[in-house]
């Protein structure tokens, strides 16, 4: 069938028009998201940047807004983050390796686990807080400690770490694995020398993004009772602690104008920590990819 000149012209014009419309719609969606984000950041920045100084970073909370600071909350956040990563990363990657490389026969049990992990990733975080309160704070007697917080947060991110790691592991080409087996490698050797080095950048990026979600979570920390007024630094995994979102939440709820500024400054610090973690994810991915000769 041959298209006639006029008809062809008309069809091409129509295609060009729908192409343009789609471009505008997609671009508009992006613009909307960016503008909303920019307004948020600029607003917080204008409110809080004057409060951002050395004194604010190195002071404990206080009843007087001009003497208050984020030191205990910042240290608490970093401490809890580190413990959470230490707990959730090995367990999550281990579970992902098991699901992808060992439990390869698809039966009802592996499907059940899969569905459950996906569902757990969608459970509201406050439920994890309640679980943590019951299990770690009360039953295991850990009290309102950094460790109890970290264990709760580890449960919260575990499904995300597992899903991200599984996706990274699944990308490794079966041809590479077969090549390794054909040279007499065991399954574990193949995982250790072939699969993990290739999957590692992806596992790392996914996990760091999951952990950066942890530092913004306030709900589970409120349920397990991380206090807002902590005038000392946690000296062991069992000391009481507070985290940035709770400190910010506390300041926002105070009537004095000065605390409102403190809250804005606290948000800026939270954003800075987030940005640094995401930058670390990008940096580590680049570094490991270079090492791989890809």
């Amino acid at each position: 069938m041959k298209l006639e000149g006029m008809h062809l012209q008309r069809m091409l014009r129509g295609q060009k028009r729908s192409e343009r419309v789609f471009k505008i719609v997609a671009g508009g969606a992006l613009l909307f998201a960016l503008v909303a984000l920019a307004i948020l950041i600029i607003d917080v920045f204008l409110d809080g940047f004057r409060r951002l100084d050395w004194q604010f970073l190195t002071s404990f909370p206080s009843r007087k807004p001009e003497r208050a600071g984020v030191l205990s909350a910042l240290v608490g956040t970093v401490y809890m983050m580190g413990l959470t990563a230490l707990l959730a990363f090995p367990i999550g990657v281990g579970a992902a390796i098991y699901l992808e490389e060992y439990a390869r026969k698809k039966n009802w049990f592996s499907r059940l686990i899969e569905v459950n992990i996906a569902n757990l990733a969608g459970v509201p975080s406050i439920l994890y807080g309640l679980l943590g309160l019951e299990l770690f704070v009360r039953m295991m007697g850990l009290g309102r400690s950094v460790l109890a917080g970290a264990l709760t947060m580890a449960l919260l991110v575990l499904p995300i770490v597992i899903i991200a790691s599984r996706e990274a592991i699944r990308v490794v080409s079966p041809a590479i694995k077969e090549g390794s087996f054909a040279l007499g490698a065991s399954r574990w050797q193949t995982i250790w020398y072939q699969v993990l080095p290739i999957a590692f950048p992806g596992i790392l990026t996914g996990s760091i993004l999951a952990f950066s979600r942890v530092i913004g979570e306030a709900a589970p920390m409120i349920t397990i009772g991380a206090l807002a007024f902590i005038a000392f630094l946690p000296d062991s995994p069992l000391s009481p602690f507070t985290v940035l979102p709770i400190q910010i939440f506390n300041w926002v709820s105070r009537p004095q104008k000065g605390f409102f500024t403190c809250a804005a400054a606290g948000i800026l610090i939270l954003l800075a920590v987030l940005l640094m973690m995401n930058a670390a994810a990008v940096f580590l991915r680049q570094r490991y990819q270079k090492r791989l000769y890809l």
């Binding site: 077969e178 390794s180 000769y293």
Partner: peptide
Amino acid sequence: PIEVRLRIGMVFQKPNPFPKS
């Protein structure tokens, strides 16, 4: 099976070098 694969080598349809040197 590991001993079998050590004594009986295999080359595949599509070249599958490892992403190493």
